[in-house]
């Protein structure tokens, strides 16, 4: 399933538009995505600085791809537990999101707040999500930022009972993507 999505992603985005509509697509290769888990026992946070995203400005279509192993934690042990026990990066190496920015006006200068509606694929689970996003357009250079919450149960992430108190049930995610033309 993931392979198919990736393939469709590559085909529709790269080959099709590379000749005809190169100007219409913008890309972010160094998007920043962080997540936070706050509990009374322990605070855990991790950041990924190499998240990818592409927007088709003509129709507001957006795709995001994040490598789970590229999340950096303060403690090496947390990073190990995260990859091995929780998100199982060997089996599900990526988070993928594919959707649309609703009522997106790519010509509008300045800041606009829109909803990104789409499907997020994470830990083998596909879920429809809506994320409120701030879009800052300064003469054609777009920055998307915002935050949202992820319920770890929704993505079938199992926490051993012994560590249940250390890990929040709802994880806060913040993101910032700076796009440039391809």
């Amino acid at each position: 399933m993931n392979k198919i999505i990736t393939l469709i992603f590559i085909l529709t985005h790269y080959i099709g538009f590379s000749q005809s509509q190169a100007q219409e697509e913008v890309i972010a290769r160094l998007g920043q995505v962080s997540f936070f888990s706050y509990t009374s026992v322990e605070n855990i946070e991790a950041t990924n600085n190499q998240s990818h995203s592409i927007i088709d400005l003509s129709n507001g279509e957006i795709a995001v791809s994040i490598l789970l192993r590229a999340f950096v934690f303060k403690k090496a042990l947390m990073e190990e537990h995260f990859n091995e026990s929780y998100v199982e990066s060997d089996i599900y190496p990526k988070i993928q999101l594919h959707g649309n920015i609703l009522d997106f006006d790519s010509n509008l200068q300045g800041v606009q707040t829109k909803i990104v509606k789409g499907t997020m694929s994470f830990h083998g689970v596909n879920r429809d999500i809506e994320i409120k996003t701030k879009i800052d357009n300064t003469e054609g250079s777009y920055i998307l930022s915002g935050d949202f919450e992820v319920n770890i149960k929704d993505y079938e992430i199992k926490v051993p009972p012994l560590l249940a108190r250390n890990i929040a049930k709802t994880i806060k995610v913040t993101f910032r993507f700076e796009y440039q033309s391809l």
Partner: peptide, 11 residues
């Protein structure tokens, strides 16, 4: 090496 999206990522 951390893996591959459309770029290979190294930290």
């Amino acid at each position: 090496c951390k893996g591959y999206l459309m770029d290979v990522i190294m930290l």
